[in-house]
Amino acid sequence: MVTFADENVDQADGALTLKGTMENIDQIPIYDSAQHRSTALEELQAIVKYRNLVVQFTRRDILTRYKRSVLGVGWTMLNPLGTMLILTIVFSRAFGQSQPGYAVYVLSGLVAWNFFAQSTNAAIVHLVWGGSLLRRIYLPRSVFAVSAIGTALVNITLSLVPLIIVMLIVKVPISWTFIFVPVPVLFLAMFSLGLGLLISTVAIYYSDVAEMYAILLTAWMYLSPVIYPPEILPEVYQLWIVRLNPMYHLINLFRAPIYLGEIPGMRDILICALLSLITLLVGWMAFTSKSDEFAYRV
């Protein structure tokens, strides 16, 4: 009997069949609540396995947002353009002197800011609303936040079109440094995902966290260099409020290759890389450590 394992495979048909059977048994997915702990790594594997769902959720978000509107996807481009127009009209006298091509300054800041604000907000709202789904069927819980980033990536790509048009109109030269743009976008995505997950973890327990975050976002935007150049602030505030704000670094990194036409320095890139990586890791760990409790709550 023991020698069986040493049998030459092609000696008997039975051995071949047996091998096949054993492999089949191994292939059956086994779920054991005692063994599986939804750790950070397991969630990562699950999200890779469910990547089609990320694509489908992203698709759904984009399709349903525009399906019943006349302008369709055009809204993605018009929305920041409208805000930019208003801000330019209102503030160009105040900040325009120090910032030539102020419209591009505002618009590039807005595009980066909108990516962050919309994706973090969507991550929270979708998880809370997706609760009805989570109560019925197993899904990787991070899928809502990850697909919110997917939607934001599509949107930011679309909003580069009006940005370039405005640059042509305002005559801000379009530099070759534009090719650097994917790097700050990647950091923005990592940072937004991390923060979105972190706040989602809290929002599951308390329904008003989503609303509080919306208010916080408005305040946060005015503390970020979206509308005005931070240099106009008194130096004390610059140091404490602006420099400690991660979005200060991320917006600057995004804006530099577009508005200034220069590749940011290594130090700036490293600061942003570190900020976004740490935020993503902290958010992912916090979220996955609590995600088993979600079905009890949502």
């Binding site: 086994i30 779920y31 054991d32 609540s33 197993y138």
Partner: peptide, 8 residues
């Protein structure tokens, strides 16, 4: 403990 063998 819950153990499930197979696709659900």
């Amino acid at each position: 403990r819950v153990v499930v063998r197979g696709q659900v």
